[in-house]
Amino acid sequence: MPELPEVEVSRMGISPHLVGQTVRTLTFRTPKLRWDIPQELKRMEGQVITAITRRAKYLLLETTAGTAIVHLGMSGSLRVLDGDFAPGKHDHVDLALTNGKVLRYNDPRRFGAWLWCEPGESHSVLDHMGPEPLTDEFNPQYMLDKARNKRVAIKTFIMDNKIVVGVGNIYANESLFSSRIHPLRPAHSISEAEWTSLVADIKTVLATAIKQGGTTLKDFAQADGKPGYFAQELQVYGKKGGQCPRCETLIEELKIGQRNSFFCPSCQLFEQEKH
């Protein structure tokens, strides 16, 4: 599914085409995605899109009448097209602009969402979230404090949106490998020095993925239709049985919290008795 870098790339891709433009019509070809599509979204018609921001994996299309909250789900994508481009089978939402362009939402699995937020209000899907990982609020001391007495696996811990948003499965694997931390280490066992390394590696991995245009595995492509290229930079994710790029030990795989986890048993030692 699209992770934070892919969502950020989508935001950057569509923003130049939408910000400052007026919404002509909103067309819904299905009444429901993950949740019912609220008819209040129609209030955007006739409104100027003043900004497009991101919170975690949600895109916020802001107008003075309110904000459309868009989540790409498992397989959603956004394209900016000419208005006469015919919709396909899984094109569920069209946001048509007065300049003739259309923001089109495609979602074969319908696990995404289009929601509505009144001006000056919050929405429940955005409540109780941790800091953004590319901000100063996400720092080693913050994570050290949050991890105190937490015995949950470190990989599960850094993927918890209540702790920090947007560190999805791919990027958690890659960051832990970069910091030489075994994904099953209890969160409370991570030292201050290790948190310094891990926080820096999470920021670097995510920033690199954004720069590379996101990671294309199955469903994601950028707003202009070009794929992301971070998949070419992956060190361990999806590479079970391949050689570690550092020591040539074979990469191993295990399940943590129902998610596939990849690591080097040599570089990412887990000495149980110490933890």
Rank of each mutant, 00 (worst) to 15 (best):
P119Y: 04
P119E: 10
P119D: 05
G120M: 00
G120S: 05
G120Y: 08
E121H: 11
S122Q: 11
S122D: 15
H123K: 02
S124L: 13
V125K: 07
V125Q: 09
V125T: 07
V125I: 15
D127I: 06
H128G: 09
M129D: 09
G130D: 13
P133C: 09
L134S: 01
L134M: 01
T135V: 11
T135C: 05
D136S: 11
E137D: 14
E137A: 07
E137G: 05
F138Q: 00
F138V: 12
P140L: 03
P140R: 06
Q141P: 08
K146R: 13
A147S: 15
R148Y: 15
N149F: 13
N149L: 13
R151K: 15
V152D: 14
V152S: 13
A153Y: 12
K155S: 01
K155G: 02
K155W: 04
T156R: 12
I158P: 12
I158A: 01
M159N: 06
M159L: 02
D160M: 04
N161C: 08
N161G: 11
K162T: 15
I163T: 14
I163Q: 03
I163F: 12
I163D: 05
V165H: 04
G166W: 00
G166K: 00
G166P: 09
G166Q: 04
G166T: 03
G166C: 06
V167Q: 06
G168I: 01
G168S: 03
G168W: 06
N169F: 02
Y171G: 01
A172F: 08
A172T: 01
A172L: 00
